[in-house]
Design a binder for these strands. Structure first.
Lengths: 229, 229
DNA sequence: CCAAAAGTGTTGGCTCTACACCCATGA
DNA sequence: TCATGGGTGTAGAGCCAACACTTTTGG
């Protein structure tokens, strides 16, 4: 491939930008916010880690494209997606001018991920606190994704997309504390969350090594705005 | 043009989506939030009103494309731009699959707009409270733009992009009240804004039909986050 | 002198934060 | 019985909202 083929067609006319989607997949496990990265098997970012993504096809919505690329990367359909930001620097991909619509993807269950194939040679979870070097501009995407999540924890019920159907108050608090990177007072946290009336207490209890804990679920798992923190 | 030419090239292969930018231009004049619309002279939305925009060129950033299209529509370079949302429904433009990156554009001075030419046959300001029927999905863009502005008034100094260099407290309050669609208490509003220390009082006064008012300016005109309302 | 907009403080209620002890269970 | 995490209340400080009158100017 010559340089001319990369930026222009065979008549010398510059190519229009292409459209891609990329999804920052986040999950909360082992008390840490983690993200799913794929090792790229080909192209200029070969050997680097990157978020699942690829070109949008003709006639396809952006959400559909993101879900199709996630499926190809082994990520299950239960993921919550929301648009994050569109990255359009013409040099973000050295091969061609590719405009990428980035998504934030939240997964309640890490088990919903199976090994990838095709253009990827490996897939792994990383703590967002210690990411490897990422390909393209995916570090920017990661920063923006965590920033968005952090902001929305404060005024929406977005946490429901990172937790299983039922969970204890401790788990919810650990999630908030980990994402916001600060300690929370257990009593104040509990009072505020309960005051919002977005949780329902279930009859079940979580039994473990110590005193059992009440299990709660979100009253609604659909997006909901409410002053939280 | 046949239908086939719209969605596929001459070999029958479907065309990749194109990338466009569109800017919702807002200004605050005569006590009302207003938006600049252009009457489209050709294409399927001919005769309808729409925001300035067009296809992104090869090698161009999204911001550059938005500014170039704004210039072509007669909007001056002093506009504040920020990315809003990317609209990707393949049927949003009946001619082809065009993914549009929408921008929010804030103008401090309506005088920075001159009559358009080329693909537009008319340009006019409309109150956002009474928009005409818009082409494509531009009504969605308008709603989202006003929503974003309303939200950011509460926690940033974004208002500085809608006001001239100096302004009175009344003007600032009118802007907030108009965009938030509710009355504000003059004393509480003044106290809170002053407490944030984002304004500087100038020596000048605005003289008019009644008691003169102190003129203020924003300490910084760059983006700044701060709890406001 | 009148009309109209600019400017200015206080109080009560509410919310937020800080803080410590007992409980239930498994090992 | 001990170690561990689960569950609960209160008081003081700070913040927010509600509220009305005086000042300055032009006409």
């Amino acid at each position: 491939m010559t340089h001319f083929n990369l930026e222009a067609d065979h008549t010398g006319r510059p190519l229009r930008p292409k459209v891609a989607v990329d999804t920052v997949v986040l999950a909360f496990t082992e008390g840490r916010l983690q993200t799913y990265l794929l090792k790229i098997g080909r192209g200029p970012a070969r050997g680097k880690w990157a978020f699942p993504g690829g070109l949008v096809r003709a006639g396809e919505t952006l959400d559909d494209a993101a879900r199709r690329e996630l499926r190809a990367a082994g990520v299950g359909p239960g993921i919550h997606l929301e648009q994050l930001f569109t990255f359009g620097d013409p040099r973000r991909d050295p091969r061609a001018h590719v405009v990428s619509v980035a998504y934030l993807g939240l997964l309640a269950d890490q088990g919903e991920v199976s090994p990838p194939a095709g253009k990827y040679v490996d897939g792994r979870w990383f703590s967002v606190a210690a990411l490897p070097t990422l390909g393209y501009d995916h570090s920017l995407m990661a920063r923006r994704a965590v920033g968005r999540l952090r902001a929305k924890l404060g005024y929406t019920n977005i946490a429901c997309n990172l937790l299983p159907g039922t969970f204890t108050f401790s788990e919810l608090e650990t999630l908030y504390a980990a994402v916001l990177r600060r300690r929370l007072d257990r009593r104040n946290f509990r009072r505020r969350i309960l005051a919002m009336n977005i949780l329902r207490r279930t009859a079940a209890m979580r039994r473990g090594a110590h005193r059992p804990a009440c299990l709660y679920r979100f009253a609604q798992r659909t997006a909901q705005i409410a002053e939280i923190l």
